[in-house]
């Protein structure tokens, strides 16, 4: 098992690219880290990376932010409300895209699981330890993205990316 050669700078870059492309050009990755990755938000999505590395990519945000992500990705009107399936689809796909870009930095062959979307606190014990994290904000929402490595279980799920920036010491 190899180390995942990625830090907060790479996560910031990937997050900015994905959010600016699919959420909006007003999205900004905050230039300062929170103390801990936020993984007890209302809505979470994660994907796992298997193979040469064991890692997970997590997105976490509150309900209103998740709805705004879906509203933008589905190009819903300003007065339209996103349904639960739209929210799960949108945040899951964002996790998939960020996870795929993180996976591309793995030193050897690795695979990506399908996204898993949930509510409430993530199963932190199965995610290993946080490697780095960022926060991203946009008009109408914010989210936290984090990368976890190490003691990852064999669940087939994959979800999310996060919003606040930091690196585990």
């Amino acid at each position: 098992m190899s180390d995942l050669n990625i830090g907060v700078e790479e996560l910031e870059s990937i997050t900015a690219d994905v959010w600016n492309t699919f959420v909006g050009e007003d999205a900004v990755v905050l230039p300062f880290p929170s103390e801990r990755p936020n993984h007890d938000a209302d809505v979470t999505a994660h994907v796992r990376i298997r193979g040469s590395v064991a890692a997970a990519v997590v997105i976490a945000c509150d309900t209103a932010s998740a709805a705004e992500l879906a509203r933008r990705m589905f190009d819903l009107g300003p007065d339209a409300e996103a349904g639960a399936e739209d929210v799960a689809d949108a945040i899951g796909e964002l996790a998939n895209i960020v996870g795929g870009n993180v996976k591309s930095l793995a030193p050897d062959a690795a695979s990506l699981t399908l996204p898993e979307v949930g509510t409430g606190e993530l199963p932190g014990d199965s995610l290993g330890v946080p490697l780095c994290w960022v926060d991203v904000v946009w008009d109408g929402g914010q989210a936290g993205l984090s990368i976890w490595t190490g003691d990852v279980n064999t669940s087939s799920s994959t979800v999310g990316e996060s919003v606040i920036g930091g690196t585990a010491s």
Binding site: D17, V18, F22, I97, G99, G100, N101, S104, A109, L112
Partner: peptide, 26 residues
């Protein structure tokens, strides 16, 4: 797709894909 490793691109092209666009894309 998000599968952006060179080895994956080669696999897809060898299988018969004509082009490759990596997410995120404009």
């Amino acid at each position: 797709t998000t599968e952006s490793e060179h080895s994956q691109i080669v696999r897809a092209l060898a299988a018969g894909a004509h082009e490759y666009l990596i997410k995120p894309f404009t």
